[in-house]
Design a protein around this nucleic acid. Structure first.
Lengths: 343, 343
DNA sequence: ATGAAAGCGCTAACAC
DNA sequence: GTGTTAGCGCTTTCAT
């Protein structure tokens, strides 16, 4: 490994001058600069970021910790983060916790130890965090999931509203027994989406029937399928299903197909979280898309703002959601275009 | 930030002893050990990996560089890598190049500068690499895509064979005009899959008609759709389509749907790279699944082996592929089970 | 068993 | 404009 020293020697200057050239600091004669550059070239010198960081303290690297790398939701969010990060001269490194609090801790330690400039975290848990890790010297932005034991900049979506809209849509189509495939993991998103589900029922004067909410491992299509099969095997089968995220949706659709049921006639489906191939399904899926790119962009911007000014008050950003109506809930029974909406 | 020094002071020992305790080195009296541990606790001390690494030189971190984080193929491979890595006490950090050679270079530099123990690289390009970066002091394993300008441990799939099988399947169903949505990016996988396509045609005595191969941006469903639409608008429309990967498949299916064509009657489809929801499509998709988990596992194992022994000869691993026949190519015309296969 | 001290590769005062 | 030098936080001989 070549070092500044060797470069300095070869260029016939001091290490300080080499450092100056490398870091574009003025006050170097063009001649010296040229000699240093030549030496760098000749020796194929590559400065050690590790050493540099030990001095410098900060880096142009942002760390992202997500809980399920196989979930398109998170990878799309990542794209949003990446764009903002790289536009601002930051690199992004990504770690996957697989919904495991221990792994999350390890990766938070890694990020700290690496001295990243900031961290964006979609936490596997709502509480139980090490305050030193989240409220320490490295700024952290909470993404998608609320963290309640530490006050952080946060960006979320309107889970309650989104779920409520979707379930209300099912209700407005006449469904009265609506099952939900929710999350087995303790997530704030799950609680909020269940809340939205409950609210919609309440608006229609319906009680929440606990047996109609099944909890699935949100990382696994197979487990979601199993829970959906259970729901569909109920003596008084639900006529509609509301799903927690894209994975549970896939499991649910698989279960429905296996049971030989037709959508929406035998069972209607509304999903939280859209799929890029929703229109390729038969019938196309009614869903509440999440503004993934926007979510990532916002998180990155909040983080950069905090890096720039560590003392600004923490803020919370909740992005709103809209339902996209396709055919999986039955033909739309709203009046056609142009017709006045009489009761 | 607390340092060894402060811990040492508080524990009433030297920094050397603190370091010994921290690194589980024997020869420390239980008493001293206890005092150090207490001090660590009390000060919430967190050793700086940056400083540590400057001395130590190596880390328990593996770097993975992939070209499209939104592609399920790569994220599934990641899971395989992760399992092996964490089972061996390594953390995994992931970077996304978005098929951009410049970004790939930047991230390779980041990984080098971070001094990771090893790198797994799905390169955006076949050549044009900096040999210092790939054949330098940090071991690199090439994943999924062949790198020809530097000799590396490599793990691939049998692209030629897989493509050949898929296209032969279409041919055996009577198709004679078979279009291919391939990759606009210069990828070895694209060349090999095109090769397989050509071989299958040749076996049936058919020439490759260049106008039937359209190149799409493999990251974008939208672009794949566009290319597929072009193919479907040809005066002498192909009766079957073979797609390069899951993204091109999605674009192609979208195009077919938009054109109002039926699968497989109007146009049959066979895909390279399976989708977890292939059976939810109507009709279910015939595809060549890739052993993603195995691919990641193998890559990680090769990398660990090389880290353990930097001087072993480089090896190349090519995983074989099988076609999964579903309905998107038409009813299977092979004899039913148990019937002797007469001619 | 423990401590003193050197030094990993780099940057940034400070002196000239 | 350039060089000397101290030191970032850690590990590791080498003494003791």
């Amino acid at each position: 490994m070549t070092t500044v020293k060797e470069v300095a020697k070869r260029a016939g200057v001091s290490t300080a001058t080499v450092s100056r050239v490398l870091n574009d600091i003025p006050n170097v004669t063009p001649d010296a600069r040229k000699r240093v550059q030549d030496a760098v070239q000749a020796l194929n010198y590559r400065p050690s970021r590790v050493a540099r960081r030990l001095r410098i303290k900060h880096t142009q690297v942002i760390g992202l910790i997500i809980s399920d790398i196989q979930n398109l939701f998170f990878t799309s969010v990542t794209r949003g983060i990446e764009d903002i990060a790289s536009r601002n001269g930051y690199s992004l490194i990504l770690c996957n916790t697989d919904e495991d609090a221990d792994r999350e801790r390890v990766y938070l330690e890694v990020m700290h130890a690496e001295n990243v400039a900031g961290i964006i975290l979609a936490s596997a848990t709502e509480t139980g965090h090490d305050p030193e890790l989240l409220n320490g010297r490295i700024p952290v932005v909470a993404l998608d999931r609320l963290i309640t034991d530490v006050q952080l900049d946060t960006v979320l979506v309107d889970n309650v509203g989104g779920a409520e809209t979707a379930v209300a849509h099912l209700l407005s189509h006449g469904h009265r027994r609506i099952g939900m495939i929710s999350s087995q993991q303790q997530l704030t998103t799950a609680r909020e989406r269940e809340d939205g589900y409950g609210r919609a029922l309440k608006e229609f004067g319906l009680p929440v029937e606990p047996s109609l909410i099944r909890k699935a491992d949100v990382r696994q299509i197979a487990d979601s399928r199993r829970q959906a099969l259970d729901l569909l095997a109920l003596p008084d089968r639900p006529t509609a299903l509301f799903t927690f995220n894209n994975t549970t949706t896939l499991g649910t659709l698989t279960a429905i197909q296996e049971r030989g049921l037709r959508i929406p006639d035998d069972v209607a489906v509304a999903a939280f979280d859209d799929l890029p191939w929703a229109t390729l399904l038969d019938p196309p899926l009614t869903a509440v898309p999440q503004p993934t790119y926007e979510l990532g962009k916002t998180a990155a911007e909040m983080l950069l703002a905090r890096i720039a000014n560590p003392h600004r008050p923490t803020t919370q950003n909740r992005l709103s959601l809209d339902l996209v109506v396709r055919e999986s809930c039955g033909a739309d029974h709203r009046p056609p275009d142009g017709v006045a909406q009489a009761v």
